[in-house]
């Protein structure tokens, strides 16, 4: 038998692939240039470090959200998971729980809540939107009950280092976020689990028929999302030195925005963490710019909404096969 390679394409550039790959970076560059012209504070080192530090919280939540959306799911409960794990941990740390145990406890709560999400979806056949919406409400309710509406402040210094310390010039939150992104990227691109995430998102029926344990994988994905949210919560309370009952409210929106602007498709199986990273930075830069330019916070929501809609239109335009 002979092999006939397909005819190579003679010449020409594939613009849509190029645009898809570098479009986001271009938009970021344009935004950065624009902002540096409009405000002389934008390009200062301290402001840039500030942007990245701000971006870490959302970035870490968005890592988990990327996995979830890649399976064609959604996790609306990240803000509530963050809150519940944060307040319980803050309380126990104040009562003298050793810091390493406190960290493990928070991550454990995140994993557990994620697991409940995953089980509702895979065993209860509840659509992810509904299941995690339920968890959003329940999680927030439990948080309010646990705190009785009062914040926990004054956390041990040994704990606060993950929010306030620096590794050389780099703030600790950024170090943690980079580690999370790198680890997640390795898992997503190099492991069986990562492959399965894409396959399940692309075609869950075919994935099952190819022997993938789709239920188990989906539960795992929501657990990871929960752990990411809890980790982000730890960094947040360490930095603020306080765990408020309303902490993390609305964070699902920012995370979903970062993922979608980063090019991961709601219909699953398409996208990845590099896009999410850029999406996070883009959104935070936008936030920062609107602040520097003294735009009213009310407008911020509008601007962000418009940016997301534009991103979706853009991806649709360059890739019509996208659902």
């Amino acid at each position: 038998m002979t092999t006939r390679a397909a005819q190579p394409r003679p010449e020409g550039v594939n613009w849509s692939v190029l645009l898809q790959r570098f479009g986001l970076a271009l938009v970021y560059a344009a935004l950065a240039v624009g902002l540096s012209l409009l405000s002389d504070r934008f390009l200062t080192v301290s402001n840039q470090v500030n942007i990245f530090r701000q971006a870490t919280i959302n970035g870490i939540v968005a890592v988990g959200m990327t996995l979830v959306i890649l399976t064609a799911g959604i996790d609306l409960s990240v803000g509530s998971i963050l809150a519940l794990s944060a307040v319980i941990t803050a309380d126990l740390l104040k009562q003298g729980l050793p810091v390493p145990l406190g960290i493990l406890l928070a991550l454990g709560i995140g994993a557990l809540m994620g697991m409940v999400n995953g089980l509702m979806i895979t065993r209860g056949n509840i659509p992810p939107f509904i299941a995690t919406l339920g968890m959003l409400t329940v999680g927030r309710g439990l948080t309010l009950m646990y705190t009785q509406g009062k914040p926990f402040t004054g956390l041990p210094d040994a704990f606060r280092f993950i929010g306030t310390a620096s590794l050389g010039p780099v703030p600790m939150p950024i170090v943690v976020a980079v580690i999370v992104f790198v680890l997640a990227a390795i898992v997503l691109n190099r492991t069986r689990f990562g492959e399965y995430v894409y396959l399940i998102g692309d075609n869950p029926v075919a994935a099952r028929l190819a022997g993938v344990n789709t239920r188990q994988m989906i539960v795992l994905v929501y657990m990871i999302s929960g752990v990411c949210a809890a980790l982000a919560g730890l960094i947040l309370i360490a930095r603020l030195d306080s765990a408020q009952p309303v902490i993390g409210a609305g964070y699902e929106f920012n995370a979903i925005a970062a993922v979608v602007v980063g090019g991961t498709s709601f219909s699953g199986g398409e996208g990845g963490l590099l896009g999410t990273l850029l999406g996070t930075i883009l959104i935070e830069t936008l936030n920062n710019g609107l602040n520097l330019l003294n735009v009213s916070p009310l407008w911020e929501q509008v601007v962000k909404g418009v940016v997301i809609a534009l991103a979706l239109l853009f991806y649709k335009a360059i890739n019509p096969t996208r659902k």
Binding site: T191, E195, L199, D202, N203, A210, G269
Partner: peptide, 25 residues
């Protein structure tokens, strides 16, 4: 088929189980 995925992923999905070490393909 996983229409949006690569020829590689589509053809070797069953192999991932065998050709992986500690989960790494």
């Amino acid at each position: 088929l996983f229409l949006g995925q690569s020829v590689r992923s589509n053809a070797s999905v069953l192999l991932f189980e065998k050709l992986a070490q500690l989960g790494f393909i």
